[in-house]
């Protein structure tokens, strides 16, 4: 059972709705449900995560039942059903990356950020988690940061430290 995290109201801007409309135009008439995944990405980029309120709004916009949105959002790993740090560092933890040290990077992040996988640092800036193969095995270890999904390759503990410092300055 997923618990409701928040009931705060959600408004989609006219600009966002315009982008939804653009996406719907890609599919034949009546197949607007196809827009669900791309629209959820847009909403998450805007709000940082997907609250039930936000998902209900998406359902209303697409004229589908709310459960159809929950089913989808909870199936795919990219959608966050609870708030995350501003920067979610997602490190590949699958075989090929582990052959070249991905586990060390994950351990290092845990010490460095002082939180466990999936938690948020007290300043609200960082979360991290191991994710499955990111299709960059030849450049491992790798990590990505949404919502742009910028890629960082051939990581070392030093380059990760540098990245964290840069992100702190950026925020």
């Amino acid at each position: 059972m997923l618990k409701v995290e928040e009931h705060s109201p959600v408004e989609f801007s006219a600009d966002l709705i315009g982008r939804f409309d653009e996406i719907i135009a890609r599919y034949p008439g009546g197949k607007q449900k196809s827009a669900l995944l791309p629209i959820l990405h847009l909403v998450q980029a805007e709000l940082g995560w997907l609250s039930t309120t936000a998902m209900d709004k998406v359902a209303a916009y697409l004229q589908i039942r709310p459960i159809e949105v929950y089913e989808v959002a909870s199936f795919y790993t990219m959608y966050f059903l609870k708030p995350q740090g501003k920067f979610m560092l997602e490190v590949c933890r699958t075989g090929p990356c582990c052959l070249v040290g991905a586990e060390k990077i994950l351990d290092h992040l845990e010490t460095r950020l002082g939180v466990k996988e999936g938690e948020v640092t007290p300043d609200g800036l960082f979360s991290f988690r191991g994710v499955e193969c990111l299709a960059a095995c030849g450049y491992g270890p790798v990590l990505q940061i949404g919502p742009e999904y910028t890629f960082y390759e051939n990581l070392t503990t030093e380059s990760v430290d540098q990245l964290i410092e840069d992100l702190k300055k950026k925020s």
Partner: peptide, 13 residues
């Protein structure tokens, strides 16, 4: 909801 062996029948709320 969810997937794999975490799948569950639910009403979400």
């Amino acid at each position: 909801l969810n997937r794999g062996d975490h799948s569950e029948i639910s009403t979400y709320i």
